[in-house]
Design a protein around this nucleic acid. Structure first.
Lengths: 221, 221
DNA sequence: GATCAATCTAAGCATTGCTTAGTTTTGCGA
DNA sequence: TCGCAAAACTAAGCAATGCTTAGATTGATC
């Protein structure tokens, strides 16, 4: 990953090269290992050149995050539309796409939720995340309409589904899972299985209304 | 958070002070904002002093992570033992404790899973995480024994439970949840509800065997 | 009371993010 | 085609920060 410059002085597509080299570095060594001077050297330019394409390091990372959300959204839509045409299958497909994206694009994923690094100023980035979230929200709502998710407040359901896939992706990427035998291929069916049955099972369990307003009447005043 | 030195030259308990000030800074501004020189100034010592207590920045962060795992383990045990004496309630208590810890000790939690920062060398740290994991594992196993979790391979069940609480905690801490009305108090019942019913419901759903060996016989050769 | 280890200070080196001033190239209108 | 303004890049350097080194101060132990 050291895309060379073509002519002498002008690089040709330095912005693209910087993004690619950065993502590869972050994938291999983490965000903190990304060094703008070394990055410039690897891209074949001087250390000041990147600043003509990105205001600062945070802006570079924000661009990576934005790109990542774009890829993620596309992958989720693709998998969802390729899934069988029932609400549960489509939600499961979204979950699988989420985890698959994280494991396959570690470099992007490692940046996408680091609000502390990228300082959520970029307007494109601010809009990218809610779009992904909306996909999930709509799918859960479909499950509810199809009565394969419990009635009631949608928020806890969406939160549960998102947390499960996000947690799995995060733990995997951080290398926190104490399983040696766990590769990304084995992750997908776990997600599938989880999502497919979780809401369906909950829907038939009368105790699982999700409104949090189950205060006991004795406590009420 | 600027514990002063008592006498003139020697601080008294610099190590403790460094940890406390660090955690407070990380809680407020993130790990990347932690600056050893400013840290030293805040603790009232010169910029070289911290290196007599921590080999480098990574070692300081590792100490914070280790401390965090200790607190987390204690909180989980406390909540579990205070819960009603059935497997489901105890697992739910573990989950609540996990999320509560994360929101209440953001400074610690932000470091605990950043293997890229702390370089997993410290032997105490290496042992701390599996202990927490074991708590979860045992609780899920109890659920299985009590038949409130599906039979079969335990790994996907543990993974699901852990992912859900870890994801919720992570999303919350990263400020990624697009809910304005969501405070830590509202998180706890969501976790409780999720954990309490997830496995129980799954246990009665015959399609949810967790062994991933459900290849169709037609594909088998 | 002397000695030694632990703790701390002062000073400085190397790395890295970013800026500034000037150079080279490209694109575009006259 | 010419000329010029904007874009892209280089070279040099400042400031912040992690870490090291040499030496000063303190507290503990015999």
């Amino acid at each position: 990953m050291r895309l060379k410059k073509k002519s002498g002085y002008h690089h040709g597509d330095l912005r693209r090269t910087l993004l690619d080299v950065s993502v590869a570095t972050i994938d291999k060594h983490g965000v903190d290992a990304l060094n703008l001077r070394e990055l410039a050297t690897r891209a074949g330019v001087s250390s000041g050149a990147p600043y003509h394409h990105f205001a600062d390091r945070a802006a570079l990372l924000a661009a990576i995050a934005e790109e990542g959300f774009g890829y993620l959204e596309a992958a989720m839509i693709r998998e969802r539309d390729a899934a069988p045409d029932d609400a549960t299958s489509r939600l499961a497909a979204l979950g699988r796409a989420y985890v698959s994206f994280a494991t396959a694009h570690r470099g992007h994923f490692r940046v996408m939720f680091r609000g502390d690094l990228i300082g959520g100023d970029s307007p494109e980035l601010v809009q990218a995340q809610p779009r992904v979230f909306q996909l999930l929200w709509d799918a859960v709502e479909d499950c509810q309409r199809s009565q394969v998710a419990p009635a009631g407040d949608l928020q806890p359901l969406v939160l549960t589904a998102w947390s499960a896939v996000h947690g799995l992706a995060t733990l995997w990427i951080d290398g926190a899972l104490p399983y040696k035998n766990l590769n990304p291929e084995r992750l997908a069916p776990i997600v599938s299985n989880l999502i497919s049955h979780m809401f369906a099972a909950l829907a038939h369990n009368p105790a699982s209304r999700t409104r949090s307003s189950r205060r006991q009447s004795t406590v009420r005043r």
